[in-house]
């Protein structure tokens, strides 16, 4: 299994990477949306993307939109992992094509439960 982790915080990427690697995911990291799109070129498609909202250059919500406008990424499940906690933002993320939404701060357990909902928790 492969996962893309997009967050401008190195610490946050590290935490998410550790959780995913413990589930035997191979992780691709990116600091913002545009870099994520670049890193996706020519690699085997990840099953999962964890995407922060607020990032420089290309925000998470714009990345979600870009991925959902490209048929190539249709099979990828997208989970926003963000400090944005307004109902309107959760709704917007879902409308734009995110499959799940986790509000920071989170625990390892919360991520596992959400992956379970998406059918992507191999443990």
């Amino acid at each position: 299994m492969r996962a893309l982790v997009v967050d401008d915080s190195k610490t946050m990427r590290m935490i998410l990477k550790q959780i995913l690697e413990s589930l035997n995911y191979e992780v691709i990291e990116a600091e913002q949306g545009l870099e994520a799109l670049e890193k996706l070129q020519g690699v085997e498609l990840p099953e999962l993307a964890l995407v922060d909202w607020n990032m420089p250059v290309m925000k998470g919500i714009d990345l979600v939109r870009a991925l959902r406008n490209d048929e190539h990424y249709a099979g990828m499940r997208i989970m926003m992992v963000t400090t944005e906690t307004e109902m309107e933002q959760v709704r917007t993320a879902l409308v734009e094509g995110a499959d799940e939404y986790v509000m920071k701060p989170f625990t390892r357990e919360m991520i596992l439960e959400k992956l379970e909902i998406l059918g992507l928790n191999p443990s």
Binding site: T85, E86, M87, V90, R91, A93, L94, A98, D99, E100, Y101, V102, M103, P105, F106, E109, M110, E113, K114, E116, I117
Partner: peptide
């Protein structure tokens, strides 16, 4: 709390069945 709705609740249910 936010921590409680983060646990196991699919986001589409949060949007549909909860008010902030």
């Amino acid at each position: 709390s936010q921590l409680e709705v983060n646990r196991g609740l699919p986001a589409k249910y949060l949007v549909k069945y909860f008010e902030q």
